[in-house]
Amino acid sequence: MYPEDLRYSSEHEWVKVEGNKARIGVTHYAQSELGDVVFVDLPSVGDTLVAGQAFAVIESVKSVSDVYAPVSGTVVAVNDRLSDSPELINQSPYEDGWIVEVELSDPSELDNLMTADEYRASVAGEEADGGED
């Protein structure tokens, strides 16, 4: 559920680094907590992402949630398939449901992100907290 080759943010985004570029999406945990995604408001190519600030909006059945940038950079690609098929976020959060690709402006920010093990441990805590009714 949490691929080893990705880095993770506490806001439940993942980052896949390739050279100076990073692909960004939301985690399996995030998509399961959001429920069925019905709309994704995407940034445009050329937009600037600032780590910690909202860069996209996901509307799931009945809730609108911001997606926060795990790293800073300039958008070089957006996943246009999400406009017609927002459910890809649920079905394939790490592959077909990616959101944007950025050129990193400060690669050292990657050090602030979690490994798969660290992220798994952090959501295990949240799942336990949220599981009680």
Partner: peptide
């Protein structure tokens, strides 16, 4: 509770 559905329920 975390999550949209769980918070609705709450």
């Amino acid at each position: 509770p975390a999550g949209v559905i769980a918070s609705y329920r709450y």
